[in-house]
Design a protein around this nucleic acid. Structure first.
Length: 167
DNA sequence: GCCAACGTTGGC
DNA sequence: GCCAACGTTGGC
């Protein structure tokens, strides 16, 4: 029996890897490397499956916001950046024999016409219990309920489009 | 730049 | 196994 599609939220600092970087990647696909938190690792390793929906979140900066969606295209596998000495997320305890850390691949689905800032999300009743909005929530890979995912998409598509430059 | 929240480390 | 110290995240 097919497993139900699940939904996730992935955080990134836009200076490090923004949704525009994702859009510019080959096949608009990237490996989600660099996660160094066990709870997040477990989601990557055990629970995220191809076809799952992803909310793409930009943290930091002057406007933290959900900026688009992506889809999981490859399930968890060893994050080889962990044993690259020059990598920012290098972990001396990791090795090819004992990878410790995991990553998945995701492909861009949609960049929202306008980002959905945290501030906006906080006012939405359907998102009251969303992990992202919990005080002190720092997890960079979080489960999102189907209802929350759908509420976010609805909001994104209801937001009036900004002036788009005519080409 | 501040600081609350939280994870990790390491002494005991 | 406790817990204080420390480092990091990330909103504000």
């Amino acid at each position: 029996m097919a497993r139900a599609r699940r939904f996730w939220l992935l955080k990134t600092e836009p200076e490090s890897f923004s949704i525009h970087d994702l859009a510019a990647s080959p096949n608009q696909t990237t490996c989600w490397s660099g996660v160094r938190n066990y709870q997040a690792r477990n989601f990557l390793r055990d629970d995220m499956k191809p076809g799952d929906g992803v909310l793409y979140y930009h943290s930091g900066g002057d406007q933290p916001a959900i900026v688009g969606t992506a889809v999981v295209v490859r399930e968890g596998y060893a994050d080889d950046t962990a044993w690259r000495k020059n990598d920012h997320h290098y972990d001396p305890k990791a090795s090819p024999e004992n990878p410790i850390w995991q990553m998945v691949d995701i492909r861009l689905e949609e960049i929202f016409d306008a980002p959905l800032p945290l501030e906006t999300l906080r006012g939405v009743q359907a998102l009251e219990k969303m992990e992202l909005l919990r005080r002190g929530s720092r997890l960079s890979v979080q489960p999102v309920s189907k209802a929350e995912y759908e509420a976010v998409l609805k909001l994104a598509h209801a937001t009036p489009k900004k002036n788009r430059s005519k080409k």
